[in-house]
C-alpha cells in the first residue's frame, strides 16, 4: 500500500482510572481492509470510535489521510468528513424517511441542493439493493434493511474510510448475509475499511490484515492465512478456538 489512510501511534486512553487502550499502534493503508476481533470489553469499539473522535484519546497520535486529530474542532470536522461509520444499533433517524436519512448529511453538512442529494441517495440505495424503500420510515424495515440504509447513509457522504462496529451483531441470523454481501461488494470496489466483527467467514474473504485485541492491547496482527492457521499467541489461539468452534 503506497498511501496511508489511518495511522495510530502509541495511542493510550483511560476512562477515569480504567486503562482502556494501551499503546495502540495500527496502520491502515489506502484501500486496505482491516478486521478487528477480540473478546468483549477488549477495547475494539473504543479503537474505532477514537478514529472519528466519538471518543478522545489522551496520549499518542492519530492521523487520518494525513490530518492529525487534535482538540481543534477544525481537525475533527475535517476527519469526520472523510470517515463514515456504521453502528451495531444502526442509529437511523426514526422520525425521517429513508430518503431523508440519506440526504440530511449531504444537504446540511455539505450544502448540496436537494435534487442532487436525492439523486445521490437513490444511487446508493440501489447499491445496497433497497431502492424501493426510499419513502418508508426506518421502523418499517427489517434489521438487515435498516443496516443497509445505515451503510448507504454513510456512503452518501462519499467517505474515504468506512468504520464498522459489529454491523451484524444485532441482526437475526437470516439477515446477516445480506449486510455482509453489501460489505464485500464495498471491499471489492476498493473502499478502505476497518471492521469490528466476529464473522470470520467474512474476515477470511475480505481482510488484508487481521487484528486481535485483548484487555486494551493489540496482541496480534497478521494476514488472514497465517492468522487463522497459525496464531502466534496463546490468547489469540484460545479466542479463535472459542468462536470457530460453533
Amino acid at each position: 500500500m503506497a498511501e496511508t489512510a489511518i495511522e495510530m501511534i502509541g495511542v493510550n486512553k483511560w476512562f477515569g482510572d480504567f486503562h482502556v487502550l494501551k499503546d495502540i499502534d495500527l496502520t491502515v493503508g489506502a484501500g486496505e481492509r482491516v478486521v478487528v476481533c477480540g473478546p468483549s470489553g477488549s477495547g475494539k469499539s473504543t479503537v474505532v470510535r477514537c478514529i472519528n473522535r466519538l471518543e478522545a484519546h489522551q496520549q499518542g497520535t492519530i492521523r487520518v489521510d494525513g490530518i492529525e486529530l487534535t482538540d481543534d474542532p477544525g481537525s475533527v470536522a475535517a476527519i469526520r468528513s472523510e470517515v463514515g461509520m456504521v453502528f451495531q444499533q444502526f442509529n437511523l433517524f426514526p422520525h425521517l424517511t429513508v430518503l431523508q436519512n440519506l440526504t440530511l448529511g449531504p444537504m446540511k453538512a455539505r450544502g448540496l441542493p436537494r435534487s442532487e442529494a436525492e439523486d445521490r441517495a437513490r444511487m446508493y440505495l440501489e447499491r445496497v439493493k433497497i431502492p424501493e424503500q426510499a419513502e418508508k420510515r426506518p421502523g418499517q424495515l427489517s434489521g438487515g434493511q435498516q443496516q443497509r440504509v445505515a451503510i448507504a447513509r454513510s456512503l452518501c457522504m462519499e467517505p474515504k474510510v468506512m468504520l464498522f462496529d459489529e454491523p451484524t451483531s444485532a441482526l437475526d441470523p437470516e439477515m446477516i448475509s445480506e449486510v455482509l454481501d453489501v460489505m464485500v461488494e464495498l471491499a471489492e470496489e476498493g473502499m478502505t475499511m476497518v471492521v469490528v466483527t466476529h464473522e470470520m467467514g467474512f474476515a477470511r474473504k475480505v481482510a488484508d490484515q487481521m487484528v486481535f485485541m485483548d484487555a486494551g492491547e493489540i496482541v496480534e496482527t497478521g494476514a488472514p492465512a497465517e492468522f487463522f492457521e497459525a496464531p502466534k499467541s496463546a490468547r489469540c489461539r484460545t479466542f479463535l478456538g472459542q468462536i470457530l468452534s460453533h
Binding site: L54, V83, G84, L104, A109
Partner: peptide
C-alpha cells in the same frame, strides 16, 4: 446517544 453520534458522523454540527 447513538442519535447524536450518528449525526456527528455524517458531519452535522
Amino acid at each position: 446517544r447513538g442519535q447524536t453520534e450518528a449525526a456527528q458522523t455524517i458531519g452535522l454540527n
